[in-house]
Simulated assay, not measured.
Amino acid sequence: MFEALLIVVMQFVIVPLTTLRTIFVVKGEIRTASILGGLEALIYVISLGIIFSDLSNYLNMIAYAVGYAGGVVVGGFVERKLAIGYRTYNVSLLEKDSELAEILRAEGFGVTLFEGEGRDGNKRYRFDIVVKRNRENELMEILDKKAPKAFIVAYEPTNFKGGYLVKSMKKATKMRQ
Score class of each variant (00 low, 15 high):
12 F>L: 15
97 D>L: 01
51 I>T: 08
14 I>R: 09
140 M>T: 10
53 S>L: 07
124 R>P: 06
60 N>S: 03
165 L>H: 13
164 Y>E: 14
109 F>A: 01
17 L>K: 02
21 R>F: 00
72 V>G: 04
49 G>Q: 07
71 G>P: 07
91 V>E: 08
153 V>P: 08
15 V>G: 03
53 S>H: 07
33 A>T: 08
26 V>A: 09
96 K>R: 14
10 M>P: 11
174 K>N: 11
166 V>W: 09
135 R>M: 01
175 M>Q: 13
120 D>R: 06
166 V>G: 04
153 V>W: 08
149 K>P: 09
159 N>W: 13
11 Q>Y: 05
68 Y>N: 07
138 E>Q: 08
162 G>T: 00
28 G>W: 06
78 V>Y: 02
46 I>H: 04
127 F>V: 05
124 R>C: 00
125 Y>Q: 07
21 R>I: 01
48 L>M: 15
27 K>V: 00
146 K>E: 15
96 K>V: 07
52 F>W: 10
44 Y>C: 04
54 D>T: 05
96 K>P: 09
100 L>R: 05
110 G>T: 00
132 K>N: 11
5 L>C: 06
24 F>G: 02
102 E>Q: 11
38 G>A: 07
21 R>G: 00
109 F>E: 10
42 L>V: 15
37 G>K: 04
50 I>T: 03
122 N>I: 02
31 R>F: 10
147 A>T: 03
10 M>S: 10
30 I>S: 12
156 E>C: 00
1 M>N: 10
59 L>F: 11
21 R>T: 05
164 Y>V: 11
167 K>V: 13
70 G>E: 09
157 P>L: 01
146 K>G: 03
123 K>N: 11
163 G>P: 10
49 G>A: 04
164 Y>P: 08
56 S>P: 09
57 N>I: 03
11 Q>M: 13
61 M>G: 15
9 V>I: 15
58 Y>L: 15
119 R>C: 06
145 K>Q: 13
145 K>L: 03
75 G>P: 12
99 E>I: 02
154 A>E: 11
72 V>C: 01
125 Y>H: 08
73 V>P: 09
105 R>T: 14
51 I>R: 01
43 I>E: 06
93 L>N: 03
127 F>E: 04
139 L>E: 06
84 I>T: 08
5 L>V: 14
106 A>T: 12
25 V>T: 07
52 F>V: 14
28 G>M: 06
77 F>L: 15
29 E>C: 06
44 Y>M: 13
6 L>P: 02
135 R>L: 10
33 A>W: 11
57 N>Y: 07
111 V>N: 01
172 A>C: 07
7 I>P: 03
103 I>W: 04
171 K>D: 13
27 K>R: 14
89 Y>K: 03
160 F>P: 02
80 R>C: 04
2 F>M: 13
109 F>G: 02
143 L>Y: 06
89 Y>F: 15
40 E>W: 02
149 K>H: 12
36 L>H: 01
126 R>L: 15
